[in-house]
Simulated assay, not measured.
Amino acid sequence: MSIELHVGDLPDGLDLAATARDNAIAIDTETMGLNPHRDRLCLVQLSTGDGSAHLVQFRQGAYDAPNLKRLLTDPAVTKLFHFARFDVAVMKAYLGITCQPIYCTKVASKLVRTFTDKHGLKDLSKDLLGVEMSKQQQSSDWGAADLNAEQMKYAASDVLHLHDLKAKLDVMLAREGRTHLAKACFDFLPARGELDLGGWEIPDILAH
């Protein structure tokens, strides 16, 4: 596993889309907390599915990142998340972008793994890939000026297995005849993120 840390943006000349496995980029974010209005975006992690990860670290208030934004809004590249609902909302709030098209492994898991209520990334990786993931750094200080090696390793691990998970889940979705339903859910996620940012998270506008 190789990890590259970039401050403020992806470097010029780095074309991750050109080497993306299955034309998809795995993406995750780290923030200061779970409230996008209060807790700032600190890190965006990306992987092309080749076992390497690129981490883009943001200083407070510095969110220009034209190279990253270009990649995240490229309609020819699928943006692959786990729990995309949160990530797309955070990136809308801080980067001012709408990510599309989207694939969310959490949504896919809930549609086909109805025999369990465990749909977290750690559970999925263990059940479908036999990979044990550590969540020890999940609650660390992502706003620190200098990230330590364990933080970077943890951040990278959240994107390194998403391509393999997608491949497994795609087979299950097709087998159960729910691929079209998954796509409809994925297409709605940017709007779901905007609803969350607008205050319709609780109560959920789709609830009774």
Rank of each mutant, 00 (worst) to 15 (best):
residue 95 L to Q: 14
residue 70 R to V: 00
residue 89 A to N: 12
residue 85 R to S: 14
residue 88 V to H: 06
residue 79 K to A: 01
residue 72 L to C: 05
residue 75 P to Y: 06
residue 78 T to D: 02
residue 89 A to R: 10
residue 91 M to G: 02
residue 78 T to M: 14
residue 71 L to Q: 12
residue 90 V to I: 15
residue 79 K to V: 03
residue 94 Y to H: 14
residue 66 P to V: 02
residue 72 L to T: 01
residue 91 M to L: 14
residue 70 R to F: 03
residue 73 T to E: 13
residue 72 L to R: 07
residue 88 V to P: 11
residue 74 D to A: 06
residue 80 L to C: 03
residue 83 F to T: 07
residue 88 V to E: 08
residue 73 T to L: 00
residue 91 M to V: 00
residue 83 F to G: 02
residue 84 A to C: 02
residue 77 V to L: 15
residue 81 F to P: 03
residue 66 P to Q: 02
residue 73 T to Q: 12
residue 87 D to V: 00
residue 89 A to T: 09
residue 68 L to S: 04
residue 92 K to R: 14
residue 74 D to M: 11
residue 90 V to P: 12
residue 78 T to H: 01
residue 91 M to Q: 13
residue 87 D to H: 03
residue 92 K to I: 00
residue 84 A to R: 03
residue 66 P to M: 10
residue 84 A to V: 07
residue 83 F to V: 11
residue 67 N to H: 14
residue 69 K to W: 10
residue 94 Y to I: 11
residue 70 R to A: 15
residue 90 V to W: 15
residue 68 L to V: 05
residue 86 F to N: 08
residue 75 P to N: 02
residue 96 G to E: 14
residue 87 D to M: 12
residue 96 G to V: 14
residue 86 F to E: 10
residue 93 A to L: 13
residue 72 L to A: 05
residue 83 F to Y: 15
residue 73 T to R: 11
residue 80 L to K: 01
residue 84 A to G: 01
residue 87 D to S: 07
residue 90 V to G: 11
residue 73 T to C: 13
residue 88 V to A: 08
residue 71 L to S: 10
residue 82 H to A: 00
residue 81 F to T: 05
residue 94 Y to L: 09
residue 75 P to A: 03
residue 67 N to Q: 14
residue 77 V to N: 01
residue 70 R to H: 06
residue 89 A to P: 13
residue 80 L to D: 04
residue 91 M to R: 04
residue 66 P to D: 13
residue 85 R to V: 10
residue 67 N to R: 15
residue 92 K to T: 15
residue 69 K to G: 03
residue 77 V to R: 03
residue 69 K to E: 06
